[in-house]
Each structure stands twice: as structure tokens, then as C-alpha cells.
Design a protein around this nucleic acid. Structure first.
Lengths: 146, 146
DNA sequence: TATTGTTATACTCTATAACTATA
DNA sequence: TATAGTTATAGAGTATAACAATA
């Protein structure tokens, strides 16, 4: 490994750069979430339930691009950990409305603060204005996707 | 699915935004590479071999963060497709120097052009100057990772 | 003793088919 | 007939342990 590897071509590719940055940021996030026993997908699901009480599994799947069969296990595990409640949906007998339990709320309150801290630490080489710009440009890409 | 889901908190997170943008860009890349029968990881490996003739498997693993046992199958498949050659390493009898075959060079010449086109199409909502800025900010994040 | 490449294997993540209960 | 949730299962992708050959 004394030779230097030429990665200049790959570094001209947007996909390569976004992927590397994602790995850096998510890697840090994973470490930070160990204390809450949450993986990134757990965090996203619970955060959405917290901010959208009564949301259904189907809506979670659609929003987070998770296939329904893969959501089942997540929700089961959250229920077992007493982080969520499932109540009959008011108008649709097939669905269950999902809410955070008191324990779930307390966990996510701390986890969401930690997530913001983790992000900030990953973005520390960037100024506040650069961070704002970066978010704006990233959102432009995935919102305008054809 | 008539209700709107509130994703505002998640959208304040850098990790969420980079991941969503990565999925958009890589998704497009995957489609574009179908005609070359290359997955993203195949493209990265072959591109590095092309730009670094004589590179070893270990160097590829280190550069692309791939574990050695998982590289074995990739290289076997490339050899079977007559895309790479393995020659004895000049100074280290344990290693093999990897190079692209003529066929591999021809494939990657086209694939690298297609990759740039795919990137450009994913980045079309951004001006040229915004694209340059985005790359710079992303590189700042993964290069300065603590 | 350490490193390269390899085999075998396990674990996680993601994807598909098919079923039930309800709309 | 279509949709929400579920089960079972298959396929990628990623991880660890252990080995032979070479440094």
C-alpha cells in the first residue's frame, strides 16, 4: 500500500461523492444511536410516528420506501420494546393507527436531539451557510427527480 | 394515503437528505449501467483497475472499503467475462497485478462516458456552478471525517 | 510474525409470492 | 376488485473465522 491510487476519475462523479459523504454521515449516526438501540431505519420510522400520530404502516412504507413485508418486523420489535401502540383505525378496519408510547416519546426526544448533534459533528468542516446550501442542493436533486 | 405525512423534522437532517439524494442518483446510475451489465461496485472496481494498471486486490479493497472475501467473487466474474487480466506482481509473490483486457478497456471507455451522462441527468435541476459547489461540499465532508 | 488471497459461512437487508381480512 | 397487513421465503449485500502461500 505504498503506491498511491488514482481516484481522480471517480471523484468527478456526483454519485461517488454523494455515496462517500452518505457513508461518512450515516456511519457517525449509527455510532451515535447505539445508546438508544436504534438503527437508522428504526429512527426514521419512530420519528415519523412521533410527528404523525395515527399514521399507518402503509403510509410509513410509502414515505420511507420500505416494502410492507419488511415493515412488519420493525413494528413488532417496537411494540415488544413498548415504544409504540397500535390502535384500531377510526375509519379503516384493515389498518392500525400507530402512536408512540410515553416511553417511545421519551426515547425519541433524546434521540432526535442526538441526531441533530451527530449531523452537526459530521458537517463540522462546513460553515453554517455552506450547510444550508448543501441541504438545498441535495433536496433539489431528490425532489426534482424525473 | 389522502393524508399528508409531515416529514419536516427528517428533512432537517443532513443524513436523511444525503441518503435520499444518493438513492436518486445511484438509482439512475443502476438503470444506465444495465446495458453494460455492471453494478455500481463493478463499475468502481473496473474503473480503478483501468486508471491504475497493476493495482492489487488488496488496494482495491482498501480504496473502495470492500472486504477481501467479497472482492474474490467480483474479480473471478470479471476474469470469466474476459474484462481483466491477472499477472504475477513484480515484487510480491502473494499478489497479482490487475489490468483491463482490450475488451475491458472498450467496455469501460463507453461506461465511463455513460456514467458522466447519468450524473449530469441526475444533477439537471442544478446549474453548473451549483453542481461544482455540491461536489466541493460533499468532498469536504468525507475528506475531513474525523 | 504479518500480510495477500482464498474458502466457507453467517448475518443483515431487500425483494417476491401468496394468503386473510376489510374496503 | 382493490388495498392493508401478514407469512414465508428467496436473493443481495456485508461480515467474521480460519487457512495456505508468501513477506
Amino acid at each position: 500500500m505504498t503506491d498511491t491510487i488514482d481516484t481522480r476519475y471517480l471523484e468527478t462523479l456526483l454519485g461517488y461523492n454523494t455515496r462517500r459523504a452518505t457513508l461518512t454521515i450515516i456511519g457517525r449516526f449509527i455510532e451515535r444511536m447505539v445508546e438508544f438501540d436504534l438503527r437508522p431505519v428504526d429512527f426514521s420510522v419512530l420519528s415519523l410516528i412521533g410527528h404523525n400520530p395515527g399514521i399507518t404502516a402503509r403510509q410509513l412504507c410509502h414515505t420511507l420506501n420500505i416494502l410492507p413485508p419488511n415493515m412488519v418486523g420493525f413494528l413488532k420489535a417496537f411494540e415488544k420494546r413498548d415504544l409504540i401502540d397500535r390502535s384500531p383505525h377510526p375509519t379503516d378496519g384493515r389498518s392500525m393507527g400507530l402512536t408512540l408510547t410515553k416511553k417511545g416519546q421519551q426515547l425519541m426526544q433524546k434521540a432526535e436531539v442526538a441526531a441533530i448533534e451527530s449531523d452537526a459533528s459530521a458537517a463540522y468542516p462546513l460553515s453554517a451557510s455552506e450547510q444550508k446550501t448543501l441541504m438545498r442542493l441535495l433536496q433539489k436533486i431528490y425532489r426534482n427527480a424525473a
